[in-house]
Write a protein that binds this DNA or RNA. Structure first.
Lengths: 404, 404
DNA sequence: ATGTAGGCGCTACGCCGACAA
DNA sequence: TTGTCGGCGTAGCGCCTACAT
């Protein structure tokens, strides 16, 4: 399991604004709720573990956020490699105050070469999807979001996460209080009525919908945490991801800032800070070193190889799609030579998978050929991770297997 | 006058989003309305003119937007001077889609030394405040923003900018259509009634208030443009400036991005892009070279010198405050030696001016000593700018007057 | 000249079962 | 099991004047 206990303490006081202005939320918030909102595919490396940071992937996220690709105006940083091995110094969880979009702030410290070669510790080999158990998620219908009525709760959901109703009352009803990612309280009337009987949220629901500006297709999720407290979060429909151009910095400066910050940190072995937006774009650019290493060592990718890869479904469950590797090579051989970032060109079996990525990275796939047990993420998923040998130099291994 | 005709053409088609997502507004919008929203103090240099760019000032704006000062993590760029003489290649005007906050995008090209010394052209010497004439601005009262009623229009305002009512009708009334910065139409019922008689906006007003999320203290302004079209804009109260922390880039990376972008552009004589948010912070970091030059050459600032400086009042008019220079020197002698950015420490006459800047730049003040006519902004304001000599090297002049 | 409040009509919000998918 | 609809009661939106500043 990822060590959620080592995340920066929740409940820390929010930072005060400088000029007597608005209070800006900068504390790390409820981990369970954050992961529920982020979705089942999103894992965060453990604090204190070693990770691989890909400037390319970071640039992709900036491009997705600004809707501007990095172009020729961006200077080259020849001393910045396509991947940095770093110590993950800190992780804090956040949500946008306007949209509730979840993101994580990570501080990374580039490691020296000697540290890179030390063997993996137990926590570095483990992984977990961190989805809470007492949890449900429903995509809102037109009726749910209209002003005409309330919210129809799926039966199983209500019975699983809400406090049990007193069914001797006529009608059975109670008041629910749930906190969102910003610790704001929302009050709902929960009632069991109608013919046939059903669970509904009535009073309080509409103010929640308008405050969060929810539309049909967006999702709402409820959690009961360890203390029996009710939490709730939202997930916007992927289509309406209204990407706001920043009025602070030009996209060029953002791209430059990402690269220059990493470059400076690598040159001085000093800390740098990045934001990871898991739902903004499928660009997971901070990877556990163990996962990366396992993929490079144990998965000899070849053109024509068959594989599976997990995706999130509309109903926020995971599903595997099948595909074939159609090519291997750098995405940007000029700027980022010998990079493993999305080095695999792939085709997908299902024609409905037309909008899926055409390029993926080694550690994202599960090969269908033997040896099964040594390949990610299967090996990483086992609760008792098996140790494995590490005698050869990482770079050497990679060159032998892919770049020779 | 600043050459508004040379701004990038308005009416240009909006840029399409990359991934089939939301259309992002990136065209330059109505200049008159933009300036009305920006306020009477905000001027933009003419496209094609030479300007001085201050990385320090740019950094201040980033700090105000992120509420994080640039700290020790930021690398030094020793080759980046505290000011860059640039050609202003392009200016486009924008407004945030969420808040309607106005900002300008400028592309700058660092100039070679030979170009710096060419004499000023006519347009470079001129300046204008660009406030429209048929215009009014009202700060909203509690009654204006409550759901109980409509909007009370100041009498003179209605008579100046709205189409004349037919006062033979009982009651006199008409429908008004006004476009905002995003070219969105808003419809209002304008009626003249009550005892005593008054101008009101009724139907349509409340949807505008809730759509723009206006509160008492915010301002609304109306303009009639040259074609008789009605335009409207908003200005948020300065206190509630809800500063959103970006979830895209860490403030460190933003600061680095600003400096690295300017540094790279200066090193390669290539274009770079900045955003200027006039209402975010009082940090005008792109100054017409002529204005800068005039201030350095003709205003021998000394400790104890008296001066006036213009500020914007609550009612969006300008007012001069008196002050005294209490010190001269660099704000950050380590990182930015010999900078003119806010090199003057000042005190203000009125005790109510406690929240005013304690540091200003030479070109922001009007000295009270002779010679009046040569000092900014008076010399710059004259419609027929007088030419003046320029034989000595700029840097030399500055050193002689301030830094020797 | 214009901010606020009382009066009050009427829209549409929102709670209810009835259906049907 | 749950999405949508017709039914309605009523809170509060929003138009009006009166009055105060």
């Amino acid at each position: 399991m990822y060590s959620s206990m080592r995340l920066a303490a929740a409940g820390q006081a929010p930072e005060q604004a400088i000029g007597g202005g608005t209070v800006v939320e900068r504390r790390s918030l409820n981990s369970e709720l954050w992961h529920a909102c982020a979705g089942p595919l999103v894992g965060l490396p453990a604090v204190g573990s070693r990770v691989v940071y890909f400037p390319q992937g970071h640039t992709e996220q900036v491009a997705a956020s600004t809707q501007k690709e990095a172009d020729a105006h961006i200077p080259n940083y020849p001393s910045l490699p396509s991947r940095l091995i770093c110590l993950l110094d800190n992780v804090t969880l956040h949500a946008d105050l306007e949209t509730d979009e979840v993101y994580a702030q990570m501080t990374l410290i580039p490691t020296s070469n000697s540290q890179q070669e030390s063997p993996f510790s137990g926590s570095e080999l483990a992984a977990a999807s961190k989805q809470p158990t007492e949890y449900f998620c429903k995509t809102l219908t037109a009726s749910d979001t209209s002003t005409h009525g309330g919210f129809s709760i799926p039966r199983r959901a209500a019975e699983k996460v809400f406090p049990r109703l007193d069914y001797t009352q006529q009608p059975p009803a109670q008041e629910l209080v749930a906190r969102d990612l910003h610790d704001q309280e929302w009050h709902f009337r929960h009632i069991y009525r109608g013919q046939p009987r059903r669970h509904l949220l009535t009073t309080g629901w509409s103010v929640f919908v308008s405050a969060k500006r929810l539309q049909a297709g967006d999702s709402v999720l409820f959690i009961r945490d360890d203390k029996g407290q009710l939490l709730l979060g939202i997930r916007r429909a992927t289509r309406q991801q209204t990407i706001m151009p920043s009025s602070v910095l030009s996209s060029d400066s953002m791209h430059i800032g990402v690269l220059a910050a990493a470059n400076h940190a690598a040159a001085t072995n000093s800390r740098f800070t990045i934001f990871y937006n898991p739902r903004q774009s499928p660009s997971e650019f901070v990877i556990p070193l163990a996962k990366y290493h396992n993929a490079i060592v144990n998965c000899p990718a070849t053109v024509g190889m068959r594989f599976r890869m997990v995706f999130e479904t509309e109903e926020s469950t995971i599903r595997r799609y099948m595909g074939t590797i159609t090519g291997i090579g750098d995405i940007d051989p000029m700027r980022w030579p010998n990079s493993h970032w999305r080095s695999l060109k792939v085709g997908w079996d299902e024609s409905t998978a037309g909008e899926k990525q055409r390029r993926v990275s080694l550690w994202e796939i599960e090969p269908l050929t033997a040896p099964f047990l040594l390949c990610p993420p299967i090996a990483l998923r086992s609760k008792r991770p098996r140790g494995f040998q590490e005698e050869e130099d990482l770079e050497l291994l990679m060159k032998k297997q892919l770049w020779s």
